[in-house]
């Protein structure tokens, strides 16, 4: 049963990633200037050369065949050439991925920890004061655009990864707080409290552990929010990562780069989500 569920999840990830690629390819195909080549403007070429170029590009006009060709090349590690940077897209991504991965990992981990600890403290202590401080504080963080936070951190010489943490933590806090509070108000927790168990033990054994599988779903939220925040953070702090590359590609309308990043990001987030769901299903099967 669990294996079937895992296989279905993997198939779903593959299918949605392929659809994301198809949508990306559709954007490339229908973007303005798709059918224009700078060789068309070269007056040294004869009309026969121009006609040969046009014929060579004609095959790309059909969206499905264009996507099929692109996918075939992508499977061989060739994601095409960046129009703006005149370099292979794969090379650009390989060069910039480590920096973004590091920033996202550090920022995501700090944001996850801060959001979770805040939510745990609010639920564990059951203090009105703490809820009244953490709740509005979280609301203010949610209202601050990551680009503005990145600017402030740049002025204050604070590591840009913390700007990503500031973007991630309010989402984690809200999700974890709702989940832990729901878990804390369940009947078995009320019974445990009535039997005189200590608050620490109640929180760890009866609130946190039962909510743990659902907390795994935070992985997808963290990955998505962290990458979304990485774009303005890398642009503003001038860090040569994937976020900055995505922005440069958007400004220069460099669609091959955008398609490759779309597929990469979709696959990353779907894999994290699927891993959480498979783990959740595994725990449920074991419990049953």
């Amino acid at each position: 049963m669990w294996v079937r569920f895992a296989a279905l999840q993997i198939a779903r990830v593959l299918l949605i990633t392929l659809i994301a690629g198809l949508l990306g390819a559709a954007l490339v195909r229908f973007s303005p200037g798709f059918d224009v080549d700078e060789r068309d403007l070269d007056t040294r070429l004869s009309s026969a050369s121009h006609a040969a170029d046009a014929e060579a590009r004609a095959g790309e006009r059909n969206l499905l065949s264009f996507y099929g060709q692109w996918l075939l090349c992508a499977l061989h590690g060739d994601y095409g050439n960046s129009r703006a940077m005149n370099r292979p897209v794969g090379e650009l991504i390989r060069e910039r991925l480590p920096l973004t991965a590091r920033t996202m990992a550090v920022g995501g981990a700090i944001g996850l920890l801060a959001g979770f600890l805040g939510a745990a403290a609010a639920v564990w202590k059951r203090s009105r004061l703490m809820e009244n401080i953490l709740g509005p504080g979280n609301g203010l963080l949610l209202a601050a655009p990551p680009a503005v936070v990145a600017l402030l951190f740049l002025w204050l010489n604070i590591d840009p990864a913390l700007a990503i943490a500031a973007a991630v933590s309010p989402y984690v806090f809200r999700y974890a707080h709702n989940l832990l509070r729901e878990s804390a108000s369940s009947a078995h927790v009320v019974t445990a409290r009535a039997r005189g168990l200590g608050e620490g033990r109640i929180f760890l054994a009866h609130v946190f552990v039962p909510a743990l599988p659902q907390l795994a779903a935070l992985g997808g939220i963290v990955a998505s929010v962290a990458f979304g925040a990485a774009i303005p953070v890398e642009v503003i702090c001038d860090r040569p990562g994937i976020g900055q590359l995505a922005w440069q590609a958007a400004v220069a309308r460099d669609m091959p780069v955008l398609v490759a990043i779309t597929m990469l990001v979709t696959a990353l987030i779907l894999v994290v989500n699927a891993a959480a769901e498979i783990a959740l299903a595994g725990v449920s099967t074991e419990a049953a």
Partner: peptide, 17 residues
């Protein structure tokens, strides 16, 4: 698909077209 893509990335990608 729309939810899994980071919101800002989706916006700048479509804006680029």
């Amino acid at each position: 698909l729309f939810v899994s893509l980071p919101w800002l990335f989706l916006l700048i990608t479509v804006r680029a077209v």
